[in-house]
């Protein structure tokens, strides 16, 4: 972080210097009009215009990347989470292809923010029983964790907890609601 800040300072310094150059740049020479021909003095051709002189090349605009996520607090991050949840089939804790894609993207975020600790919440839909769902939600959270660890995320950054069917994301009783409720959900718990 310190290094990155330093780099930004250098770039910014260069930018200032460039601006300064620009201000002091001598005016571009304009072709001076030919002096009026003397009334009766022979036929001297007019002097050719002086060539345009280029100033120093203008340095390109600096690239300033703004990180909106890094500046947010945990609540803001979690309310509009950058992490994609992993969805599961009924009675299943297998991470399917869609789940793997989500976890690949999630791993990239975790690598970008190495200071973040996250909790993976395992959730189930209401069609399972309360007790088994506690274990099923746990397996879903653990499955997501195992996959992230396989992508190189340190296990000690990943907590898990199962809520079974206690906290459905969609309170409905439709296939659509159930499919949203069978998930491993990511919560940033420390940064």
């Amino acid at each position: 972080m310190r290094q990155r800040r330093f780099a930004a300072a250098v770039v910014f310094g260069a930018f200032l210097a460039a601006g300064a150059c620009h201000k002091n740049k001598p005016p571009i020479a304009r072709p001076t009009p030919a002096p009026p021909a003397p009334a009766s003095t022979g036929t001297r051709p007019p002097a050719p215009p002086e060539p345009v002189r280029e100033a120093q090349p203008i340095p390109p605009e600096p690239t300033v990347t703004s990180d909106t996520l890094a500046g947010k607090d945990l609540d803001e991050i979690n309310k509009n989470s950058p992490f994609q949840p992993v969805f599961f089939a009924l009675d299943s804790f297998d991470v399917d292809q869609g789940g793997q894609q989500a976890l690949n993207a999630d791993a990239d975020i975790l690598k970008k923010y190495p200071g973040w600790t996250i909790t993976i919440e395992g959730h189930c839909d209401e069609r399972g029983t309360a007790e088994y769902n506690l274990a099923l939600g746990e397996r879903r959270a653990l499955a997501a964790k195992t996959y992230l660890v396989s992508l190189g995320i340190p296990a000690d950054r990943l907590r898990t907890v199962s809520y079974g069917k206690e906290f459905p994301f969609d309170p409905g009783h439709s296939e659509d609601a159930w499919s949203k409720n069978r998930r491993a959900h990511f919560v940033v718990t420390s940064k």
Binding site: T117, T119, L134, R159, V161, T189
Partner: peptide
Amino acid sequence: YTSYLPGSFSVFQ
């Protein structure tokens, strides 16, 4: 009973 307790950057049963 089963209680969800506060842990280190997490909640655990």
